[in-house]
Amino acid sequence: MTPDARTGLIDTDHLPPTQYLILEVLAARHRLGETTWTFPSRFRAVLHALADAGLIGWKSGVAPRSYIAWLTGAGRSAVLSDTYVAPAGVGRCGQTPPTMFNHAPRPVCALPAGHPGWHRADDGCEWGIAEASQQ
């Protein structure tokens, strides 16, 4: 995968089908406010190829034989429109915990928007109590 000489971006339309679909899944989840998604370990080689191209980051998942992947800045540029704005108040809460590590994306609250109480990500981690102004 080589970047386009004009734009400097990788043309995702010419990726192998599985790589293209993984990027589309990550883009769709990103549009909904989720920065990561879990994939089964059978996609390790595909995740590795996308990471080598600089489009995604990935690490071992919480569940056995799984990996968590996210779009990098180059990946977001390649698959997301610069003009896209997510609809407000639709879907998930989207709150993130305080930064603890800079090398991986922060989890995003997976509970419905406006929920009361603690925030919880897809992987089960919980943090803080939602303030009254967020409920």
Rank of each mutant, 00 (worst) to 15 (best):
M1V: 15
M1G: 15
T2K: 14
T2Y: 11
P3K: 07
R6P: 02
R6Q: 13
R6F: 11
L9V: 03
L9C: 07
I10Q: 06
D11Y: 06
D13G: 12
H14P: 00
H14F: 12
H14A: 10
L15T: 02
L15K: 05
P16C: 10
P17H: 09
P17C: 08
T18Y: 03
T18Q: 14
Q19L: 14
Q19F: 04
L23I: 04
E24V: 14
V25Q: 13
L26R: 11
A28T: 14
A28H: 15
A28R: 15
R29D: 12
R29G: 05
L32M: 15
G33C: 11
G33F: 09
T35E: 12
W37E: 13
W37G: 08
P40A: 14
P40K: 07
P40C: 06
S41K: 10
R42M: 12
F43R: 08
F43K: 05
F43P: 01
V46T: 14
H48C: 07
A51Y: 02
A51P: 02
D52H: 12
A53F: 03
G54I: 08
I56W: 03
I56E: 04
G57F: 08
W58V: 04
K59N: 10
G61C: 09
G61K: 10
A63I: 04
P64M: 07
S66E: 03
Y67F: 13
Y67K: 02
I68V: 10
I68Q: 04
T72P: 08
R76S: 10
R76Y: 01
S77T: 03
S77C: 04
V79P: 05
V79F: 07
L80A: 03
L80C: 07
S81I: 02
S81D: 12
D82H: 07
Y84M: 08
Y84D: 12
Y84W: 15
V85D: 04
A86K: 05
P87M: 06
A88F: 05
G89V: 04
V90F: 09
G91K: 05
R92Y: 03
R92P: 00
R92I: 10
C93Y: 00
G94V: 06
G94H: 02
Q95G: 01
Q95P: 00
A104H: 11
P105H: 07
V108C: 01
V108Q: 00
V108N: 00
C109T: 02
C109P: 03
C109N: 01
L111W: 00
H115Q: 05
P116A: 10
G117L: 08
W118D: 05
H119E: 04
R120W: 00
A121T: 02
D122S: 08
D123W: 03
D123F: 04
G124Q: 06
C125K: 06
C125Q: 12
E126D: 01
E126L: 02
W127T: 04
A130T: 07
A132P: 01
Q135E: 13
